[in-house]
Nucleic acid binder design. Structure first.
Lengths: 232, 232
DNA sequence: CGCTGTATTGACAACGTTCAACGGTTGTGG
DNA sequence: CCACAACCGTTGAACGTTGTCAATACAGCG
């Protein structure tokens, strides 16, 4: 299958890469279509490939020994994922589940050291990416340590609307199917609590949505909640 | 001041580095003594240097806008810290506070790109380090999402005993001063709850300790708690 | 048309925070 | 060297947020 070079080049991660380097990179990639509901890789599986998401959405989940699940992150177009081997792991730490029909580039993890060798700039880019991800993780830890559930949910929804928001007449639509359970797993609470919170928000006109759909009608209002304004 | 090369070389991070590369690295470092209670750098301050801890202990904290504090991580000898600029940040995301008289190597952050250029292996090493740190952050998120306070505290104490444990007759001593407040800030709870939990543990012979001291008397027992055994 | 997954809502229990008071230890300055 | 302040730790009681249990309803899909 043919790979759209200009699409890849439009991602911040690759925009600074010289054309011929990019060409070489892409020539070694294969492309893969992932239907919604399929897993790209599974927690604990051997880390044979790493990936670049071209479009669609994935969620990366982890399950605890006793069966509880959390969402580690949502993968958006332009994101690298399945990075495990680059971090000196042999297995994937989580499961990447497709929630919205996706297209991804795949490289064998063995190629990683050679890439770095040829292109040290890539190492720095990768470092920045991981660093940013670490920062996000710390933010989440800080929120879970210090904020009550409603604020955490507000933050999560705002992040989603930033990363996956599509402007509509009535507000900002989260551009992929997402359930209350998903939001619960992103914020460390239960779907019941999320449902209660979002019902309250809906009656205040902050959001609206039903089954797997979510529309933010009042971003400023949500921000106020996220920043600590008490719900009135 | 003279720098002890063999000490640096004993850290996993540098053990694979050729001698002359290491020499060059060290020749550009300055050494700094940090008394307990002092900050190496402060949250929001310009990221002018990055560091390697030779001995002593630091805690890296963040404060929220409304004044609550969390401990992001504890820095142990051999750890790199103050990495910010390598991750494309201009400021330090947290404050590094010395809790136990420390010695650290300092490099200007400007040197980082040159280091990488000269020594691509260093980039991979750094990538692994950050990757591991990301993994730890996810572990913490998972624990905070799914586990109750007592298990989280058990996990935190076990980690400390692994990273800073010193064998003693009666058990494993945490080798630096640590308060209930500290543990609360590592686990996302209050010092009151930590105090209650540790009092209960003490009466069961799992731990002992008083003012800023902590001794784990029964590692297996704590592990059982951390793995989900109900407290009897 | 019934099944499965999603969502809503109520009642209740509990875990953990908040508020409050007190005791002990360390370190400091008169 | 003693008095005092500052810090650390403990414990009790009350409250509240949030999880648990349970029942119902609705949408999509085979």
């Amino acid at each position: 299958m043919k790979i759209d070079k200009s699409l890849v080049k439009s991602f911040p991660l690759f925009e600074k890469m010289p054309d011929d380097d990019l060409e070489r990179l892409l020539s070694q990639a294969t492309i893969r279509r992932i239907p919604a509901g399929d897993a790209v890789f599974e927690q604990g599986g051997a880390a044979t490939h790493f990936f670049l998401l071209l479009n669609g959405r994935l969620k990366v989940t982890q399950v605890t020994p006793d069966g509880q699940q959390i969402i580690v992150r949502v993968v958006h177009p332009g994101d690298l994922f399945g990075f495990a081997k680059a971090l000196q792991r042999l297995d994937y730490p989580g499961t990447a589940l497709c929630v919205s029909e996706a297209l991804a580039l795949c490289w064998p993890t063995d190629l990683w050291p050679r890439f770095i060798d040829r292109n040290p700039q890539l190492a720095i880019t990768a470092l920045n990416t991981i660093g940013q991800r670490l920062d996000e993780a710390h933010t989440r830890i800080r929120e879970m340590s210090t904020e009550e559930v409603e604020r955490r949910v507000a933050h999560a929804v705002l992040r989603l609307s930033k990363q996956a928001g599509k402007a509509e007449d009535a507000g900002v639509r989260i551009d992929f199917p997402i359930t209350r359970q998903d939001i619960a797993e992103m914020t460390g609470t239960t779907l019941h609590t999320v449902s209660r919170i979002m019902s309250a928000w809906e009656s205040k006109g902050l959001v609206s949505g039903g089954r797997q759909r979510l529309l933010v009608r009042n971003v400023a209002g949500l921000k106020a909640l996220a920043d600590g304004a008490k719900a009135g």
